[in-house]
């Protein structure tokens, strides 16, 4: 690893000053699980590493009227074990529990994972179906960006220079909504999924009133599949409708071939796992 300067600011204002001072030469670090590996491999070069870990308040998980607020520095393990998350966003507790191994979940943070923007990560599909928003704070001010608009490409996001992701806001879902997350890991359980699907649905008297579906590892970013959602919303729930809707996924994804499978294979698995997720969330099969 090439050497670099290390900064551990005690406030967000101080972190912003460092980012302004060093610009491109600075990299923010949260838990460091992804960044340290990239630094070791020299895939990322940083003259200045700015650690966010000493800034107070960024690890907090709390409830507000607009939803559950999860601090960007909350560790994945915090989310997995938080009673608040279990009560108000059980899907997230379940999804974060499935990321990598407990050792990584003890180090990696919610915000660090999101800005890393690897399309095969587990949380983004779940955050997408929950309509989560991200608070991005810069020196000049702050803005909220829906997760849906945050991921732009492989490892590329809408985060602007000088901005820091400070928290994830997860709107509370109606009590009658059901949610599910499926990940296909034919190699090992702690691997990145070959393909993953999150779905959230609300059914009233046999009719699908709400449907949200998002896929991971199937395109340059995790993405919502509106074609599938529209095919089911307002429709009577049936196996045939689910099968037809799931088939639409094939047209919407653009997986990359890698050692987990060819692009064609992943596209097929995207359809299969979408169907299973839909069946699960609609109470079929």
């Amino acid at each position: 690893m090439r050497d670099f300067s290390y900064h551990a600011p005690a406030s967000l204002a101080e972190a912003h000053s460092l980012l302004a001072q060093y610009g491109d030469a600075a990299r923010l670090m949260a838990g460091g699980t992804a960044l340290t590996v990239m630094l070791k491999q020299s895939l990322v070069q940083a003259d200045h590493l700015v650690s966010l870990q000493r800034i107070p308040g960024l690890r907090r998980i709390h409830l507000q009227s607009d939803g559950l607020h999860i601090g960007a520095l909350a560790r994945l393990r915090d989310v997995e074990t938080s009673p608040l998350v279990k009560e108000h966003a059980p899907l997230l507790a379940e999804v974060y529990r499935q990321v990598a191994t407990v050792r990584i979940r003890n180090q990696a943070t919610v915000g660090g994972g999101i800005v890393h923007a690897d399309p095969a990560q587990d949380p983004p599909p779940a955050l997408l179906v929950l309509d989560a928003r991200l608070r991005l704070v810069s020196r000049a001010g702050q803005r909220e960006v829906p997760v849906r608009e945050f991921f732009l490409d492989y490892y590329e996001t809408a985060l602007r220079p000088g901005e820091v992701l400070t928290e994830v806001i997860v709107p509370l879902q109606t009590k009658h909504a059901r949610a599910i997350y499926l990940r296909y890991t034919p190699r090992t359980q702690d691997d990145y999924p070959t393909v993953s699907v999150a779905a959230l649905a609300r059914v009233e008297r046999g009719v699908c009133r709400e449907m949200r579906v998002a896929l991971g590892a199937a395109a340059p970013t995790a993405l919502r599949i509106t074609a599938v959602e529209e095919a089911l919303r307002g429709k009577r729930v049936s196996q045939a409708a689910v099968r037809r809707a799931a088939a639409l996924v094939a047209e919407q994804v653009s997986p990359l071939e890698d050692f987990r499978g060819s692009a064609d294979y992943k596209r097929d698995m995207a359809v299969v796992f979408t169907r299973r997720a839909l069946e699960g969330v609609l109470g079929l099969g």
Partner: peptide, 21 residues
Amino acid sequence: GVCGACTVLLDGRIVASCITL
């Protein structure tokens, strides 16, 4: 950070010391 050989306890939590600065 994958294999677990470098596991240590940091404030009681297991971490991978190979990817911890």
